[in-house]
């Protein structure tokens, strides 16, 4: 087994929904029992539709969401183990330096009244990681260069930059404290495709150069497939499938993953109408369906799915799925032509 950077065990994150006079108040289970290991040095993708709980799960690994049940631990490269449910003040200070978040919207994430230099330097100053101003400047310049920003950029204000450049500034700020675990939450979703590729390449390169562990949260399966070495698919607060991207695309073992792949608009105009369509929408996490959470939209639903929730189990090496009938899916695939067509 490789070294694990983030270990999640039966994690539940509940948010209270008002108060009730009698008994326990109703709760929304944003994360409803997730067990997952993120290997050190991996680029780990987490995909799902809005409302699937992917952002909450990411935040729980940064001690930014309440741990209602279960356990989340992050181990840094020096071997210190941080338990998200029990972080005292001193440990939290050390942890903040080790784990950082890159946000989605590069327009909202940067203060318009600070220069780029001050934005990138702020974490160093807040955490008092440098003794002198020169030391801060050296560090800022070094990380800015790694994020392909030049020295004259540092004197300007964020409004002078395009979306792609702003995202590079956000990345530099996240990396300035020399962290080893990064959560990138929809970090390329707000960018144009032409720029998106550039930021993805940069993230990959930084991950290799600085040996970072990435949790890359995205709604876009094709982006995740291209950048990540592991992919977890989330639906209504649960992980439904985990696999390396190649396996996931070649042989999905959960009907939700299969449908997600097939819903990606193909670049081939002759592919129209071939895709498998899911009916309905993701149910509200306030009242998740009984049994398998996906059964209300599943094209291959059977009686068992309505009563019994499937556990995430291993279906092949490094590949797990939470479906009662994932073996049928594998068989059907071998027999029939693949529903995911490849453009010429």
């Amino acid at each position: 087994m490789t070294d694990t950077a983030v270990s999640i065990r039966d994690l539940e994150v509940h948010f209270p929904l008002g108060r009730s006079l009698l008994g326990k108040p109703p709760v929304l289970k944003a994360v409803a029992g997730v067990t997952l290991d993120i290997p050190r040095g991996s680029f780990f993708g987490l995909v799902g539709e809005s409302g699937s709980g992917k952002t909450t799960l990411g935040r729980a690994t940064l001690a930014a969401a309440p741990v209602s049940a279960g356990q989340v631990t992050v181990t840094d490269r020096e071997g210190e183990v941080f338990d998200m449910a029990r972080l005292d003040r001193a440990a939290e200070t050390r942890f903040r330096r080790r784990a950082q978040l890159i946000f989605q919207d590069p327009y909202a994430a940067l203060s318009p009244r600070m220069t780029v230099r001050d934005i990138i330097a702020e974490p160093l100053e807040v955490m008092r990681l440098c003794r002198t101003r020169d030391e801060v400047n050296d560090r800022v310049r070094a990380i800015a260069a790694q994020c392909r920003l030049n020295v004259e950029h540092l004197r300007r204000f964020p409004h002078a930059f395009s979306g792609g450049q702003r995202q590079r500034i956000s990345i530099a700020r996240a990396l300035v404290t020399n962290p080893d675990y990064i959560v990138a939450d929809e970090s390329v979703a707000a960018l144009d495709v032409s720029i998106q590729a550039d930021i993805l390449n940069l993230l990959k390169q930084l991950q290799r150069d600085l040996s970072l562990t990435f949790l890359f949260i995205s709604h876009d399966l094709s982006v995740v497939a291209h950048t990540c070495d592991h992919v977890a698919v989330m639906y209504l607060g649960r992980i439904v499938e985990v696999a390396p991207p190649r396996r996931l695309f070649a042989a999905p073992r959960h009907p939700y993953t299969r449908a997600l792949i097939s819903a990606i608009p193909s670049l081939d105009p002759d592919d129209r109408g071939r895709a498998e369509r899911l009916t309905g929408e993701i149910p509200s996490p306030k009242s998740p369906p009984p049994g398998c959470a996906f059964h209300t939209r599943c094209p291959m639903v059977r009686d068992r799915c309505r009563v019994e929730a499937p556990a995430l189990r291993q279906v092949a090496d490094g590949h797990s799925a939470a479906c009662h009938f994932s073996d049928d899916l594998a068989l059907a695939r071998r027999r029939a032509d693949s529903p995911v067509r490849v453009p010429a």
């Binding site: 720029i195 998106q196 590729a197 550039d198 390449n201 094709s222 497939a225 990606i264 490849v342 453009p343």
Partner: peptide, 18 residues
């Protein structure tokens, strides 16, 4: 620049500059 599902090994080529 578009990620393609058919070829996961293909490098993503951004349009240079902004």
């Amino acid at each position: 620049a578009l990620p393609k599902l058919t070829d996961l090994d293909a490098a993503l080529t951004p349009v240079p500059g902004d």
